[in-house]
């Protein structure tokens, strides 16, 4: 009985310590998140971590407890004094807790979040979205703004650039093919459109069109935090590590200026 009491008290105490430490880490658990979908991921991550901390503490503490308390002082093969092979209480506790936790996790966050995600994708709620066509080729991200007639957004150096207004919902339309080699059916491979700071990635599969809806909430750029970048996350050949491009999230005013600039560039180039 003594071991059970001591172990239980230690378990509760250490779980509390664990939860306290986790509480300090929670605001930064995914480092730097600045978009709607990312907050969802961060909340889910923290929720799971909160419930799994006592589980982790239980088993880890038990193993340490075994090393300290249940070790044989010598190597002699002496039978353990207790030989219980059944303990209904412990079995019910273990199996019950694992069932309850898993059902809980499936209902929340999994089902609840997916439901929210599906709701955000209903077309009638996305009339005013900023549409960005993203074309992935080996190895480049090409950003097209069809609502503004911008065919390929570039920065001053001529590199592809993704710029988004803060607070406005964006609909990314993701396709994988090579616009410069459309005759070659073997040219498209799977890429993965990932902005680490948005907490979301979506594979870009040749032959299919994928959508991603997201609302950036903070003005930021690759210069302020390197997680604000587009990064290909699926291996797509030797150019894969360098298939990235900077992202800027700007105010609405700056965005319309930037669009004008892009249109002028395009006109100057004869497009």
């Amino acid at each position: 009985m003594g071991d059970l009491v001591v172990f239980s008290i230690l378990w509760i105490l250490l779980s509390l310590v664990g939860e306290w430490a986790l509480g300090l880490a929670k605001p930064h658990s995914l480092y730097y998140i600045i978009a709607s979908q990312g907050y969802m991921a961060e909340r889910a991550f923290n929720f799971l971590a909160t419930w799994l901390t006592p589980v982790f503490v239980f088993v880890a503490l038990f193993l340490i407890y075994t090393l300290l308390r249940f070790r044989a002082p010598d190597g002699k093969p002496v039978k353990s004094s207790q030989q219980k092979m059944r303990n209904m209480g412990f079995t019910v506790f273990w199996v019950g807790v694992s069932f309850v936790l898993n059902i809980l996790f499936f209902l929340h966050p999994t089902s609840a979040d997916l439901q929210a995600m599906f709701a955000s994708e209903i077309p009638s709620r996305n009339h005013k979205d900023l549409v960005v066509d993203v074309t992935a080729r080996q190895w480049e991200w090409i950003y097209t703004y069809p609502q503004y007639g911008v065919k390929q957004a570039v920065n001053n150096l001529g590199e592809d650039e993704l710029e988004l207004p803060v607070g406005r919902k964006v609909k990314f339309v993701l396709r994988s093919y090579d616009p410069f080699h459309t005759y070659d059916v073997y040219a498209g491979v799977i890429h993965d459109f990932w902005i680490p700071a948005f907490g979301m990635k979506e594979a870009v599969v040749p032959g299919l069109t994928r959508y991603e809806y997201i609302r950036p909430t903070v003005v930021a750029s690759y210069q302020t935090n390197p997680m604000v970048r587009v990064q290909c996350a699926e291996v797509c050949g030797p150019g894969h590590p360098w298939m990235e491009s900077p992202v800027s999230i700007v105010t609405a005013g700056q965005f319309s200026q930037w669009i004008k600039h892009q249109q002028q560039l395009q006109a100057a180039a004869g497009g």
Partner: peptide, 16 residues
């Protein structure tokens, strides 16, 4: 693995 099983978390950490 429990974190990875949850789709919203998975969307962030998949392929990392």
């Amino acid at each position: 693995g429990v974190f990875l099983a949850d789709p919203p978390v998975n969307f962030q950490v998949h392929n990392t």
